[in-house]
Design a protein around this nucleic acid. Structure first.
Lengths: 236, 236
DNA sequence: ACCTGAACACCGTTCAAGT
DNA sequence: ACCTGAACACCGTTCAAGT
C-alpha cells in the first residue's frame, strides 16, 4: 500500500491516463506473456489499484485489444505511390513481421482479434489502394486483400507460436530423437530431408519462432503469395 | 458433492480415462469457448473433482494441447497417390477448414500451438510426400510445406477470430456506420467497393468467421497459394 | 473526474488422506 | 492405481466511499 505510493512517487507523479496504461500493458505483455499478464500485476507496476485501471481502459479484453492496436500502429508502410505493387506488398509484410517479432507475445492475440479494426483503417485502406491500382476491383479486390492479409497475419502467428517446453533440454532431445526414429521407420521423405525439416518445419520443430525465426521460409512464402496474386490479376 | 455422484451415476459409471476427459474438454470448449473453459467446470461436468483430472491428463495446458490434437485428428486426407498434387492440397485444406469450422473455438489455440506436433505426424508426412512428388526437395520442400501449412492454418485462424460485441445490434450499427462515413470522407477506394468489403474484409467486418464464413474468399486464397507454389516449382 | 479499499465469486494446482 | 476434500495463492470485476 505505502510501497505502492512510493513506487509511483519514485517515477514522476503524472496522473494515470489510458495511454500510460496501454504502454505499461505492452511492457508487461512483452515481459511475462499472456500467461503471466494480470490486471493486478499491471496495477502494481503502475503504482495504483486494479480498480483504477477500469476507469481508464475498461476491462481486460478491451485493454488487450487496445494493446494489440498499439503494436500494430508501429507498422511502417512506404508511401502508396512508390514502385510496383509487388514490392510495396512485400515491404508491408516484412514490416508487419518485424513489428510482431519485436512483440512476439501479442502474435497470438492479433489473429484472434482480426474481426474488427485492430489494424488501423489507414493501413487497410493503403493495402486496398495498392491492390486496386494493380487491377483488382469488387469481389476480386476483397479476395486479394483477404488472401494477402490473412496469409501474412496468419503465417506470422503460426511462426511465433511458442513451445512451453522450449527450454527443457531433456524434452528437446527426446522430441528430436523420437522424430528421427519415427521418420526412419515410417516416413522416408521426412528422413531423407531431415536436415531441412527438423526444428524448421511447422509441427516438426521444438523451438518457437521467437527463438528461431524462419526468415528464409517467410521470404519464400512471400513469393508464393505475390506470385499467386499476380496469377489472379484480371487481364488488363 | 452428493449431486456429483448422482450426476456421474446417472450416466454409465465408467471409470475416468484420459480419453473421456479430452472428449468432455472438447465438448466444453465448443459450448463455452476458451473464456469459459475451466478445470473446475470440466470436473463438474464429469462428476468428479478437479484434482482427479490432473491424474489423467496433466495440467490445463497439456489438456488443451491434447484437445487440439483430438480435433486435428478429424481431418480427412485423401490417399496420397490420388490425382494431381494441386487437387490433393486443395482437398486437405478444405478438410482442415471444415474441421475447424466444426470447432471454431479451437482455431485460436491451433495457431498458437503449432510449434510441436499437435498436427499428426502422419498428416505432415503426407503433405511432404505430395510436395516431394510434385518436385520439391531440401530447403525448397521445407519452404513449400511451411508456406502451405502456415497459410492454411493461419488464414483459417484469422477467419475464425471472434468479435465479443458480435451480438450487440447497437455496436454493429455504430461500427458499420462509422466505417461508411470514414470511407466516404477519407478512403475513396473503400467507399467505391463498400458492398464487397463491409463485413467481408478482415478488420472491416463485425461478424466472426463462425457466424459469417468466408467461403468464396477461402477458395480464392487457395488459388493464390496453389498458383504461387506452382510458380516456385523447380524446372523438371 | 478520478482513486481507494474492500468485497464477491471465481480460478489452477498441490497434497495429505483415503480406498 | 485412482479419487477425495481441503487448502493455498492467486484471479477479474464491482461498488460504496473517499477526494
Amino acid at each position: 500500500v505505502a510501497e505502492r505510493r512510493r513506487a509511483r512517487a519514485s517515477g514522476d507523479d503524472r496522473p494515470l491516463t489510458a495511454e500510460l496504461v496501454v504502454d505499461a500493458s505492452l511492457d508487461l505483455l512483452d515481459e511475462v506473456g499472456l500467461e503471466g499478464f494480470s490486471m493486478r500485476a499491471l496495477a502494481e507496476r503502475l503504482g495504483t489499484y486494479p480498480a483504477s485501471l477500469y476507469w481508464h481502459v475498461g476491462d481486460r479484453n478491451e485493454l488487450l485489444a487496445a494493446t494489440v492496436s498499439r503494436v500494430l500502429a508501429e507498422i511502417a508502410a512506404p508511401p502508396v505511390a512508390s514502385g510496383p505493387w509487388q514490392e510495396w506488398l512485400r515491404a508491408v509484410a516484412r514490416s508487419y513481421r518485424a513489428t510482431l517479432h519485436r512483440h512476439p507475445n501479442v502474435a497470438a492475440l492479433v489473429a484472434s482479434q482480426l474481426t474488427v479494426s485492430v489494424l488501423s483503417l489507414g493501413l487497410s485502406a493503403a493495402i486496398l489502394d495498392v491492390l486496386h491500382a494493380a487491377g483488382f476491383t469488387g469481389d476480386a479486390l476483397n479476395h486479394a486483400y483477404n488472401a494477402y492479409v490473412g496469409s501474412v497475419v496468419g503465417w506470422v502467428s503460426v511462426e511465433l507460436s511458442a513451445n512451453p517446453n522450449e527450454h527443457d533440454p531433456d524434452w528437446q532431445r527426446q522430441f528430436s530423437e523420437s522424430l528421427t526414429s519415427l521418420a526412419q521407420d515410417h516416413y522416408p521423405i521426412i528422413a531423407a530431408n531431415l536436415d531441412a525439416l527438423a526444428d524448421r518445419a511447422f509441427a516438426l520443430r521444438w523451438h518457437g519462432g521467437s527463438e528461431r525465426p524462419l526468415d528464409a521460409a517467410f521470404e519464400a512464402a512471400l513469393d508464393v503469395w505475390i506470385d499467386g496474386l499476380a496469377a489472379r490479376l484480371p487481364a488488363p
